[in-house]
Design a protein around this nucleic acid. Structure first.
Lengths: 342, 342
DNA sequence: TATAGCGTCTAAAACGTTTCATCCAGTCGG
DNA sequence: CCGACTGGATGAAACGTTTTAGACGCTATA
């Protein structure tokens, strides 16, 4: 209905169309009297800028997209919040897209975003092989920043947390606590984090020796998957059963915790647990969960900053790879109470 | 860089500009041979539609927005997932905006969305007073569907869950379990759900009589706020201390659970707890949490359906108000074991 | 007095689509 | 053999901005 254009506003205020545009974009170049007249016309007609037209002229939009693996995963929601802060501060808008770890959906999203000529894309890609879709974006001049994924590529910025270090921290801690039969739960290993956290754990264990690491692969990083994996683990004869479990994320860890207590075993006395991500609920779990904490919001903030920087500096931009260090938060789920192990 | 036009594609394929457009939009109206030639040109040039131009012509975009109170709240992430399904199925795109319960940010978002001429807006508004911003959208012909908020208005569709009923279910359950000193925790009461769940609880209690309801207002619906509120409650002399707490959401309930167990009290023996929302972590909490479950994804799906319906039917659209019924999930946190209360 | 400069405003081009009226070359019925 | 129709293609207009080159009237400077 009320679809007033800039032209109608101009007519209403008795000025030319270009003047209205100037009032909108460079208010100081137009005389106060006329400016006021134009502003009055604008409010009277209920005029609202048409962003499509503006974008068409500008060649690109003022929105930045973030493509996450799962909107419902607390890790990503925090990253989103961090990115949001920075993006909105810059007067742009952040749109959140959910790939759901499905590369077809991811591709679909990237196509749409490319059609929209978004200002830039923050993304945690589904796989970690070559990424033709992303390369295409970059060719077109749309900056891409990788979030929490492979820092190797020279053609794009990235932010990540050192997952190898995180795995190492967790493992060192469990070894310090005297554990000698330890399990690593997570999967699929095609997810880089899952593999790297494992690599860190394995490395730490190898350096210190004298302990064994059993790996149980899960089909996804959910509470339910954690429960299922724990079932198998707990079915082992007591002598072989791991005394500690290091989980690829907190959801898995919560699943393990559920299953362990459901079987009447105690945490950490019978099975110690260390998770990863330190989501808000980790501290509120049945037994407060030890976990490797990542600076999630900061990850999002930094990613957004790199993106905006690249979008502004254009050709002269130097790609950067920022790596944050995780931190182990020890809570009851892995705190040795009394008797030494084994 | 590679900013190929529809015009360049046309030149490349040796056809007119309009023909290329036809290939894109009505492939069957163009002869197979030419169609193929155009398609080849498209892939060769790496042409990607410019959505701004398309939108400008069409008068509106193909995206639908959802404005939520908190991206990190599991309730909303599920609603988002539901809406996403429907919206993407319809070939549109869902963008998620976060108001953070801040009405200034909400307004800013709505302004941007209006500038973008979005196809429609799903929103859980911050306050529940009059909403001039939303009215403005509707005036402009942009459909708005209220999510989980006041079903009264005739000028817009809405989907909601019956929060009064939810409060009633929780309270009836606690009364059935023999509790006579009960507390309601939640806030701020300016959030409609907080008020309505309380109203339901109060109504149930009044009907059955013989029990008292103490209300403790929290400043927000977070775990931390729950802990703080619980502190005050537990400071009461044992004889006055409530034997059961009904919380306005699960985050609060988890906070209460944390605080109660931190003080060496047992759940449900000393304090029973019922939460609201039945988030995934409710079942994985220290003591599995009884909670009122809402059909969250369905809420999102239905909202999106109503929106798309309205966007298509235009003038002839009849606004509808869908109300879903919540369901109480009883878990250990409120299950009476033996001795009767009072 | 001419000129340069400044502040203010205008007119027109350009951005990349979609759509609509037209046109053209066949084909078919009479 | 002619008129009517049809499938397929074209050209131009329109969508609503932003931006650029100028125009116009003044004042300050040479």
């Amino acid at each position: 209905m009320a679809a007033a254009n800039i032209k109608e506003v101009a007519r209403h205020a008795g000025v030319s169309l270009g003047t209205v545009s100037n009032v909108l974009n460079r208010p100081d170049t137009v005389a106060p009297a006329t400016r006021q007249r134009v502003l009055d016309a604008i409010t009277e007609l209920g005029y609202v800028r048409n962003d499509s037209a503006r974008q068409l002229r500008a060649g690109h939009s003022r929105t930045v997209a973030i493509v996450v693996l799962d909107v419902a995963n607390p890790f990503f929601t925090d990253v989103v919040r961090g990115a949001e802060q920075v993006v909105e501060e810059a007067g742009a808008m952040l749109v959140v897209c959910n790939s759901g770890e499905d590369s077809a959906r991811e591709r679909r999203h990237l196509e749409l975003l490319e059609e929209q000529r978004v200002r830039g894309v923050l993304i945690t890609p589904v796989g970690h092989g070559p990424q033709p879709n992303l390369d295409k974006l970059i060719d077109r001049g749309i900056p891409v920043v990788l979030v929490d994924r492979g820092s190797g590529r020279a053609s794009r910025c990235s932010v990540a947390v050192d997952d190898v270090l995180g795995g190492r921290l967790a493992m060192d801690h469990l070894l310090d606590q005297g554990h000698r039969r330890i399990a690593y739960l997570g999967g699929p290993f095609s997810i880089a984090q899952v593999a790297e956290r494992h690599a860190g754990a394995a490395a730490a264990l190898e350096e210190r020796g004298g302990a064994e690491l059993r790996v149980a692969t899960t089909s996804s990083l959910t509470v339910a998957a954690g429960r299922r994996a724990a079932e198998d683990l707990l079915a082992l004869p007591t002598r072989q059963r791991p005394t500690a479990v290091f989980c690829a994320n907190d959801l898995i860890a919560l699943g393990v915790l559920q299953e362990v207590t459901a079987r009447g075993l105690r945490v950490p006395a019978d099975v110690a647990i260390v998770g990863y991500d330190d989501i808000e609920f980790a501290g509120a779990a049945a037994v407060p969960l030890s976990s490797v904490r990542q600076p999630r919001e900061q990850l999002g903030r930094t990613a957004a900053q790199l993106l905006l920087e690249e979008a502004q500096s254009g050709e002269t931009h130097q790609h950067r790879h920022v790596v944050f260090q995780p931190e182990l938060v020890v809570r009851r789920s892995s705190e040795q109470t009394r008797r030494a192990r084994r």
